[in-house]
Amino acid sequence: MSTFRDRFAAGRGYLAACTLGLPADVTREAVLADLERWASGTASAVEYSATLERARGHAATLLGVDAARVATGSQVSVFTGLAAASAPAGAEVLCIDGDFSSVVAPFLARSDLRVRHVPLADLADGVRPDTWMVSYSLVQSATGEIADAASVADAAQNAGARVLVDTTQATGWLPTTDLDADLIVCHAYKWLGAPRGAAFAAVSGRLADELTPYTAGWYSGADPWSSCYGPDLHLAGDATRFDVSPAWHAWAGAEAALGFAASLDAAEVHDHALGLANAFRGRLGLDAGDSAIVAWPDAEGADLAALTAAGITASGRAGRARVAFHLWNDLEDVELAATALGR
């Protein structure tokens, strides 16, 4: 797996895939080629649509669903917002205490919904008979902890509740092809190394029937080129009716990035990233874990400052220092980070 370092222009000491991923060579080339086409006046709206459809197929592969179930957009919160706007008045939504705001805030914005927060470990047990939806991140942004998706799905099914799972901090290093959820949402700019502004979602048949496509526009029709004008409402019969008009230049890079990620052996990528994370945990005296994200208490920011001073790109969240290991990293990065911390 370390041979993939050659696919990235940078990466030594870059431990921040959980903040902003790096583009592989094919992604960089696609973005530069798109810029040249745009600048030369040869860019084509029809070609951008073809690019998006290829990207949709790659996204479907990464989520293990049919492409007809995949909607494309710009941000996770847009898809969460559709779920929140479509929830019946008085419905209960169950969230993880301290989860990323994009899977929480849209529900809180509606004063007539009951949003309840529980610790990550209690998420499955927190599902009640009157829970309408469970909305959570598969991998917690601040801590790197991984939710027990199977247990949550079982509990939700028993209660008749819907499930929204955000895989932004998972897809790209953690296989996400076997999730049982009504709405899987993902932004591709982290572990997938795509430009920011390319997000996608997989929608179940049940939820597709319940969601109102409030963001419907010219790209939500079965043939976008015939749905550019009113007075009629043009909606596709599948999940593409939830498409948001694509940010073309972002998707030019995202198509290459998603295709690259989909071509890799997902188990091999997982073992590589997790192996490096656990090697680093060992250097810190921490127990082995199950996440490629390593976070530890750093309330004063001293450890983050030491990493930064040593040329390591890391991050701090919620009073913790946070590093992540991905395709461009190897054991030398573990050594550099551990040495910077005096370990």
Rank of each mutant, 00 (worst) to 15 (best):
residue 90 G to C: 01
residue 63 L to Y: 08
residue 225 W to V: 12
residue 258 L to A: 02
residue 204 S to G: 04
residue 128 R to N: 03
residue 92 E to V: 15
residue 57 G to E: 03
residue 249 H to F: 14
residue 207 L to E: 11
residue 27 T to S: 03
residue 221 G to N: 07
residue 225 W to G: 09
residue 56 R to K: 11
residue 30 A to G: 09
residue 23 P to W: 14
residue 80 T to C: 12
residue 246 P to V: 13
residue 35 L to H: 04
residue 125 D to H: 13
residue 277 A to H: 10
residue 165 V to Q: 13
residue 67 A to Q: 15
residue 26 V to E: 08
residue 74 S to P: 00
residue 86 S to G: 00
residue 114 R to L: 01
residue 103 V to R: 13
residue 38 W to N: 05
residue 180 D to Y: 00
residue 266 A to N: 04
residue 106 P to F: 08
residue 180 D to N: 13
residue 9 A to M: 09
residue 261 A to C: 08
residue 158 N to F: 00
residue 271 D to L: 01
residue 57 G to S: 08
residue 318 A to S: 13
residue 195 P to G: 07
residue 153 A to K: 09
residue 235 L to W: 00
residue 160 G to S: 04
residue 157 Q to D: 14
residue 172 G to R: 11
residue 103 V to Y: 09
residue 166 D to G: 08
residue 216 A to G: 10
residue 139 V to M: 05
residue 65 V to C: 15
residue 87 A to N: 04
residue 203 V to S: 12
residue 150 A to C: 05
residue 133 M to I: 10
residue 227 S to I: 12
residue 266 A to P: 02
residue 42 T to N: 06
residue 70 V to S: 14
residue 327 L to G: 07
residue 160 G to C: 06
residue 148 D to S: 08
residue 20 L to K: 08
residue 54 R to S: 09
residue 217 G to S: 12
residue 59 A to H: 06
residue 263 S to G: 13
residue 203 V to T: 15
residue 219 Y to G: 04
residue 27 T to V: 13
residue 81 G to P: 11
